[in-house]
Write a protein that binds this DNA or RNA. Structure first.
Length: 346
DNA sequence: AATACGGGGTC
DNA sequence: GACCCAGTATT
């Protein structure tokens, strides 16, 4: 074992955080935590993880649940395909794998929503297999230790996978995987790394050259599109007409206050009829809201409305009248939180 | 290799 | 307001 790997493990033993999923060796528990942690901070995940494991303690309970319930527990966490894939994978394991979580890297990788990182993490942490798991943390930590030049994304990734794989400590594969990520999360952070607290300054080429700031290499991203939306709160007594978004794409399967693209109030009713086949009587302006996604932004103007005539919703299963009190039972994305809030304060 | 896909914390 | 985060699927 290389000195740095040994030192790293010692540091981890002393400094690791006490996280809920570190108290389990259950592959299911590890898997859930790794999916939730994709592009998501530990502190955000804690609550969701606890609620999820209480409601879905094992593969079977998840497989038997309705997708609506699964999405409701995921509400607000983002990247909702993660929840859909967890559900799909649980049913796959139940129906075609005897209910036993797959035990090899290749089999784990084959699960929907599981890529190279997550498969490596679960394989090493849950099963003790010497499979590297290279996330943003590991990429940064290893790049700095070895001062790896950024040629292109893929080759650096490959090189680091190899370096990590070359130094797996027998019997401590899971700790090694987590130690690399933990160092990146606590010490070898993106900006102003805490080198004074780092156990590896003696082995770190970036530290030696004082070039820590060269990593991570940030690549330019193009600005998100701004989309203007007209949104309606359609009322009927104490009920509101909610719309379930399509099963694919942005916020797939989540419920929303229905709307159309556009910015002028007079466009609302005709476009709405065009798109949904429902006649709208648009009322007063309710509120404006802006929501920023990673790749786009919604500028929303929200109006009250009623349905003209006695429109039947029979042929539109993606629309449903919901009592105000029951609104919280639907999985509604954060973009509409402010609108929902306004309804309750009125 | 580039893009779609959420949301929130941080400086 | 920009940057970034325990990434994956699709093209």
């Amino acid at each position: 074992m290389q000195p740095w790997a040994e030192i790293l493990l010692g540091w981890y033993e002393e400094e690791k955080r006490d996280l809920p999923w570190r108290r389990s060796r259950d592959p299911y528990a590890i898997w859930i935590s790794e999916i939730m942690l994709q592009q998501t901070r530990v502190e955000t995940v804690r609550e969701y993880y606890h609620r999820w494991m209480t409601r879905f303690p094992d593969i079977r309970s998840l497989a038997e649940a309705d997708l609506d319930m699964v999405l409701k527990l995921w509400e607000g966490l983002g990247y909702y395909s993660r929840a859909r894939n967890l559900h799909k994978a649980a049913r796959l394991i139940t129906d075609e794998m005897g209910g036993i979580f797959p035990t090899s890297y290749k089999q784990i990788l084959a699960l929907p929503g599981v890529g190279p990182y997550t498969a490596g993490a679960v394989a090493s942490i849950a099963f003790g297999l010497p499979v590297p798991a290279v996330d943003g943390n590991v990429l940064r930590v290893m790049s700095r230790i070895f001062a790896l030049p950024e040629i292109d994304q893929t080759s650096v990734q490959t090189a680091i996978k190899q370096l990590v794989a070359d130094h797996f400590p027998p019997g401590r594969e899971g700790d090694y995987t987590q130690a690399l990520m933990e160092l990146g999360a606590l010490v070898c952070v993106p900006r102003r790394p805490l080198c004074d607290c780092c156990p590896l300054t003696g082995q770190c080429q970036a530290y030696e050259q004082n070039t820590q700031s060269l990593w991570p290499v940030i690549r330019e991203k193009k600005p998100g599109k701004e989309i203007k939306r007209l949104v309606v709160v359609i009322k009927r007594g104490d009920e509101i007409l909610m719309h379930q978004r399509p099963a694919t794409g942005l916020l797939a399967g989540l419920w929303e206050f229905p709307g159309v693209e556009g910015s002028l109030k007079k466009e609302l009713a005709p476009k709405f009829t065009d798109e949904y086949g429902l006649q709208l009587k648009v009322g007063k302006h309710l509120v404006d809201a802006i929501h920023v996604f990673t790749h786009l932004q919604w500028d929303m103007k929200v109006y009250e409305a009623t349905l003209a005539g006695d429109d039947e919703l029979g042929g539109k299963p993606d629309f449903r009248w919901i009592r105000l009190k029951e609104l919280e039972q639907l999985a509604i994305p954060t973009a509409f939180r402010r609108i929902r809030q306004v309804l309750f304060t009125n």
